[in-house]
Design a protein around this nucleic acid. Structure first.
Length: 682
DNA sequence: ACCTTGTGAATTTTT
DNA sequence: TTCACAAGGT
């Protein structure tokens, strides 16, 4: 058994490093603490919080002051809270929640900032109308015509939005006559639609400014809702990004507020600093400056790893540029992986943070890089299943780049394809993966959630160990005796089917034939969409997934829904298990990005030249390294991001790591051998 | 030769 | 949403 004996020498060094953090905290010396994957970063953070509580807690309590701990996700919030235990002294939250708490009571200032923003947006839009070549026809109108067009189209808003999806000839049928006085305005109908949308926006913003001026009800406050990420500026609603924008503005411009924040929260600890937005680091920097001016104690600590910044927006390795004079502390140990893996991830990140395993018995893993053909993937996985004795208790984790591939490999490609082709998710393409594949049920879309609940009901029903109250609400069974309850439950065993169609039918059958009113109540809970039972599930799906359905599309839509409902129930069960992240398979698939923060004994990474729109995403990366010595420095924008993604993926492995590259690697074979050492064809 | 329209395909993730 | 491209028009 390896990875079990901790080196006493390194253990002492680790303690010394932690002590260094404590010393900085006690001296109010701001720090940036960086350490690589699997080093126990969260541990260091939580220990630091505990240190502040133990050493300074009494003073904080007396002055009614709090420690602030900022994390990147709500999952991380819970993690820190769990590890820390209950403490009234620490406010653990995401940055958005914290900022909103700090500024939400300054509504007078917020509304002022909002007015400024609205005016700014209006001038940006007007500038577009004045300069963009596609609005030339509009610019050629005289002022009278312009306002005539604006008035006309504003009066037709509803019709306009309804007609948006029509093709050019239909659209011209609808609006052509009314627009004949505006020369060339409909020459290009998609440009015209863009024009009108801008006009509507300007009009909305102007109306909002007016409502603010006359202090209309509902326009006295700026509103932020964490579960709704979209600017609706004309309804006074702001998105996550705009919240940070307003936050920094209000803090920048109000010395008094700065002092209040400093005095109420003398300790700020920021987790995953690499993912923190630049604006937030700016705020921290401003607060630091201010605290020095007024000579009030204030501490900022950044905890993170620059090599694990895989999304744009995060500040990455540039914290020092925005927030100067931070003391750098590095923890150079790895508590996760075998030496073989640690060596390779060190080479990939190629910066000043080099890890060594903290264990004396760190050898025993293996890393290999293969290149080969796409059709060999199955054989490759099978071979490693037997090489590593893969079973349900010792799983193989396979990383791919896209959710589409995850769905295909995990066995529910038909379900994925159906949703991807619906009107709803074609329009809101970005929402597809969240609403269909999220492990967090509150983020599932309406229809995925509906299906999930039906499958959950069936699954819990067929499991003898399910507690009754997980299937039936208490008021349904509370007045039944055991005999009745037994009959009731056994009647529900008729809920079954080989397809979703059959399953849903068997549920509605119970509803229609039920003599017991409780059956109807139960099924009403399950089918809680508006219109049931008169409205069928098919119509429900059609309404939600294909809004504003055109008549000529009804039959193809009906066919798509029919095919979807006839997908084998096994496929739905695979999807259901995937949502719960309880796959009952010995191979589990993930996206590279989705594995951040996780760790697995056995990892296979499938890779190729392309990712997204960039057909040479990974190839460019390896080529840049390959050519670095001869052609100066081939630094390009995506280099850092690609490196970090590769680092995150490879550093998940505890013991065994394989990379299977599905394109030709001859052009950068030397580089591959430098990084991965063992490079072969498969 | 240039423009307009329609079509199909493409990423990951969080707040 | 954004891009690339093909088909067909001017």
């Amino acid at each position: 058994m390896n990875l079990s004996i901790i080196s006493s020498e390194k253990k002492q060094e680790e303690i010394d490093i932690q002590q260094e953090i404590f010393n900085s905290i006690d001296k109010n010396e701001n720090i940036i603490f960086s350490s690589g994957a699997g080093s126990g970063k969260t541990y260091s953070l939580v220990e630091s919080l505990k240190h502040i509580i133990n050493t300074h807690g009494l003073r904080l309590k007396v002055h009614n002051q709090k420690i602030v701990c900022i994390t990147y996700t709500n999952v991380a919030v819970e993690e820190v809270k769990n590890r820390l235990g209950n403490s009234e002294l620490v406010l653990v939250s995401t940055i958005h929640e914290r900022i909103w708490e700090l500024i939400k009571d300054y509504q007078k200032e917020l509304v002022k900032i909002h007015q400024y923003k609205l005016n700014e947006e209006i001038s940006i839009l007007n500038n577009k109308l004045d300069t963009d070549s596609k609005f030339a026809a509009y610019r050629n109108l005289n002022n009278e015509q312009k306002s005539g067009l604006v008035d006309l189209m504003i009066s037709q808003t509803e019709l306009f939005y309804k007609s948006q999806d029509e093709n050019s000839s239909k659209f011209r049928e609808i609006f052509g006559t009314q627009l004949r006085d505006f020369p060339n305005i409909l020459k290009n109908y998609s440009d015209f639609k863009d024009l009108i949308k801008i006009i509507y926006k300007i009009n909305n913003y102007a109306a909002c400014l007016h409502s603010i001026d006359v202090k209309e009800e509902g326009y006295l406050k700026v509103k932020y809702n964490a579960s709704y990420n979209s600017d609706r500026l004309h309804w006074m609603r702001i998105s996550h990004d705009t919240l940070l924008e307003y936050g920094i503005k209000i803090i920048k411009n109000h010395n008094v507020l700065q002092q209040i924040i400093i005095d109420q929260h003398p300790y700020f600890l920021i987790d995953e600093y690499q993912d923190t937005e630049k604006k937030v680091v700016e705020i921290m920097s401003i607060l630091t400056e201010r605290s020095e001016e007024i000579k009030h104690p204030f501490f900022v600590g950044y905890f993170g790893d620059p090599a694990q910044n895989i999304y744009d927006g995060g500040i990455g390795k540039n914290v020092n540029k925005v927030h100067p004079n931070l003391k750098t502390i590095i923890k150079p140990f790895n508590r996760r992986s075998t030496e073989e893996v640690v060596t390779i991830i060190n080479t990939i990140r190629n910066d000043e943070i080099k890890q060594s395993s903290i264990y004396d018995d760190s050898k025993g893993g293996s890393v290999k890089f293969y290149s080969g053909q796409n059709d060999r993937v199955d054989a490759f996985i099978e071979e490693h299943k037997s090489e590593w004795n893969i079973s349900l208790r010792n799983k193989l984790h396979c990383f791919v780049l896209t959710n589409k591939s995850v769905a295909e490999y995990s066995g529910f490609s038909n379900i994925y394809a159906f949703f991807a082709n619906t009107k709803k998710y074609k329009v809101a393409y970005q929402q597809l993966n969240t609403e269909l594949l999220s492990d967090n049920q509150v983020r599932l879309g309406e229809i995925p959630l509906f299906i999930f609940r039906v499958l959950e009901f069936k699954s819990k029903l067929s499991n003898t160990y399910t507690p009754v109250q997980e299937v039936l609400k208490e008021y349904i069974y509370s007045d039944m005796n055991i005999g009745l309850l037994r009959v009731f439950i056994s009647s529900l065993q008729n809920i079954k089917g080989n397809t979703l169609h059959e399953l849903l039918d068997s549920i509605t059958d119970i509803y229609t034939s039920a003599k017991n009113i409780k059956h109807k109540e139960l099924i009403n809970q399950l089918f809680d969409f508006e219109g049931f039972p008169d409205k069928s599930v098919k119509n429900y799906l059609s309404e939600v997934l294909y809004p504003n359905l055109k008549e000529e599309d009804t039959s193809s839509t009906a066919k798509a829904i029919e095919d979807f409902l006839n997908i084998n129930l096994n496929e739905f069960e695979l999807w259901y298990k995937y949502i719960l992240r309880e796959n009952e398979t010995d191979v589990v698939y993930h996206t590279y990005h989705g594995t951040k923060g996780l760790e697995f004994d056995n990892v296979v990474i499938l890779m190729g030249n392309a990712f997204g729109r960039n057909g040479m995403y990974f190839k460019n990366f390896f080529m840049a390294i390959q050519n670095a010595s001869e052609a100066k420095n081939e630094y390009y924008e995506e280099f850092e991001q690609t490196k970090n993604l590769l680092y995150v993926a490879c550093s998940r492995a505890i013991k065994n790591l394989r990379i299977f590259y599905l394109d030709d690697v001859t052009d950068f074979k030397a580089t591959l051998s430098n990084i991965f050492v063992d490079v072969k064809e498969y």
